Amino acid sequence: MSDLTLRQDAAANPIASIRGHHIAIRVPDYEAAKNWYVEKLGFRVLQEWPFGDMNLAYVAPPHDDSFVIELIGDGEASEAPQYEDLGSSLRQPGHHHLCWNVNNVDEAIAYLAAQGVTLVGEPFEVEAIHRRLAFFADPWGNLFELAQATA
């Protein structure tokens, strides 16, 4: 099947308009998580609402509302894994990380380190995809990647 045929088929696909909106992150303490994302990452709270015994919020990066994080907190929650190195984290099934593009990975990681954010390994380059990458984690074990184009 040619690339053109695939594109034509996609135009008739009822989910061809699919676009990312948010990723939900379950945290045990809603207020602590909301404060961490605002204070450490500079995120903004876009909306908040209750759901049963839980509280939820959409939080967004400082200058981008196109893809947000939905925090789901309070109520009963299980313990999340804590990663200390990227290699071992890649062995776990399921969601692994969320990636954001930044202008400069090294400057972004230095800023996060100054904020006391947990860094997971050192920044590194993957020449096959022309990217410099770095990983960090929130206090609840959620991994995030920062990516910078290198080519």
Results as ranks from 00 to 15, higher is better:
E127Y: 01
W36R: 02
Y83N: 12
I109K: 08
A114E: 15
R44D: 07
Y58W: 10
V105M: 01
R26E: 11
G75L: 12
L119M: 15
V38R: 12
F67G: 05
E31V: 09
D65V: 04
L133K: 02
A60M: 06
S89Q: 04
V126M: 08
H22S: 14
F67S: 10
P123M: 00
E48M: 05
L90I: 12
G116P: 11
V126E: 09
Y30T: 13
L46Y: 06
H22K: 08
S89H: 01
E70H: 07
R26W: 11
G73S: 11
F51L: 07
V126W: 00
H21F: 14
N55V: 08
A128L: 05
H22C: 02
G121N: 10
R26Q: 13
H97R: 02
A110K: 10
L46S: 09
S88C: 02
G116I: 10
F135W: 07
R91Y: 15
G116E: 13
E76S: 14
E122R: 11
G75W: 14
H22V: 10
E107H: 07
A113D: 10
L119Y: 08
A24V: 08
G94E: 09
R26M: 11
N35K: 14
A60D: 01
Y37A: 02
N35H: 14
D85H: 13
I109Q: 10
F135M: 04
W49L: 01
H22W: 07
Q47W: 04
